[in-house]
Simulated assay, not measured.
Amino acid sequence: MKIAVMGAGAVGCYYGAMLARAGHEVVLIGRPQHVEAIERDGLRLQAQQFDERIDPSQLTASVDPAAASGAQLVLFCVKSPDTESAGAAIGPHLAADTLVLTLQNGVDNAERLRGVIAQEVAAAVVYVATEMAGPGHVLHHGRGELVIEPSTRSDALARTFAAAAIPTEVSANVRGALWAKLILNCAYNVLSAISQLPYGRLVASAGVRASIRDIVAECTAVAQADGVSLPPDLELAVRRIAETMPGQYSSTAQDVARGKPSEIDHLNGFVVKRGEALGVATPANRLLHTLVKLIEDKASGAI
């Protein structure tokens, strides 16, 4: 299968590399510094069980969305604020029967993407701890499973991913799974960003577990008011993040450390907006959203 990865950051590079190792034709569409390194040296995947360089003959890279032409599957991995613009850029180059799978934070990306491209779009929930350790070098800290929305090819995709050592579940309640992932991100991302601590050290600090409980309670109240069916094991899932990814810094923490805009408007900010619309108070999430926006504005020189 030819597979294109639109937005080849840490998540996109990890899944692209795993699929390339399984024999698929993969093209990564990303930023110039990563593309240049991959074209020159291949992509280094430093995983927990192996450290391997994926040769350019197995995996190619480009800055041009047109490189996705001929792809049967697109892994759509851009940051949430870029969903519409990236969709508009890649859509004209895709065949009518290309399936686009969104591997993004937030709960409404698939719906937003359907508004700008004609191809079939399916949502996926991603549970993986990765970071770009340098140009053309992805570091895998743990996990890697996907929960995907039913589509015309979901069962076949699940088998394809499983054969590439990517555990995959097809779920009829992807909305609930997306909200559960959103709640996990709201609980951990900002606290990791402000403290610049990985999850394991973060939860060992005084007051953090209680703060996480407050954040989760607000998010859960908003989800329930919105008619979302959350998984019954959410409390366990919240605890497991720190247990299974103790060395991971949140994506928000990585963005803040690099002085880049984060996805905070689509995480805690989204919960605040839905809470306002539904009449649910979200003071903890509002404060966290405000703090990250202040950090971003200071870094950009806006204040």
Results as ranks from 00 to 15, higher is better:
residue 69 S to K: 12
residue 188 Y to W: 05
residue 83 T to D: 07
residue 123 A to T: 03
residue 59 L to Q: 05
residue 97 D to N: 15
residue 141 H to I: 13
residue 173 N to S: 07
residue 115 G to R: 12
residue 89 A to E: 02
residue 129 A to R: 03
residue 160 T to D: 14
residue 165 A to T: 14
residue 135 P to E: 06
residue 98 T to A: 08
residue 172 A to I: 01
residue 137 H to F: 15
residue 74 V to K: 11
residue 145 E to N: 14
residue 142 G to L: 04
residue 136 G to L: 13
residue 126 V to K: 01
residue 88 A to K: 12
residue 70 G to C: 11
residue 67 A to R: 00
residue 177 A to D: 10
residue 72 Q to F: 11
residue 94 L to I: 11
residue 115 G to K: 13
residue 187 A to Y: 01
residue 84 E to V: 12
residue 151 S to I: 02
residue 95 A to T: 15
residue 102 T to P: 05
residue 71 A to C: 10
residue 135 P to R: 05
residue 115 G to P: 03
residue 182 L to M: 06
residue 151 S to C: 13
residue 92 P to A: 10
residue 113 L to D: 03
residue 159 R to T: 14
residue 162 A to R: 11
residue 59 L to F: 03
residue 78 V to N: 04
residue 129 A to F: 01
residue 124 A to S: 07
residue 107 V to H: 11
residue 69 S to I: 07
residue 188 Y to K: 02
residue 99 L to T: 06
residue 65 P to R: 00
residue 130 T to P: 01
residue 86 A to E: 03
residue 100 V to Q: 13
residue 74 V to E: 08
residue 120 E to F: 04
residue 83 T to R: 06
residue 184 L to R: 05
residue 161 F to P: 00
residue 143 R to K: 10
residue 115 G to W: 12
residue 108 D to A: 14
residue 59 L to N: 02
residue 106 G to Q: 06
residue 74 V to A: 08
residue 153 R to T: 09
residue 129 A to V: 03
residue 130 T to N: 06
residue 140 H to P: 01
residue 171 S to R: 10
residue 171 S to V: 08
residue 155 D to A: 10
residue 81 P to T: 12
residue 79 K to Q: 08
residue 81 P to A: 10
residue 187 A to Q: 01
residue 104 Q to H: 00
residue 158 A to F: 00
residue 181 K to Q: 05
residue 137 H to A: 08
residue 185 N to G: 11
residue 100 V to I: 13
residue 168 T to V: 02
residue 77 C to T: 14
residue 82 D to P: 05
residue 108 D to L: 08
residue 153 R to F: 03
residue 66 A to H: 02
residue 152 T to C: 07
residue 139 L to F: 15
residue 79 K to R: 06
residue 87 G to R: 05
residue 174 V to W: 04
residue 113 L to T: 12
residue 127 Y to S: 09
residue 91 G to Y: 07
residue 115 G to L: 07
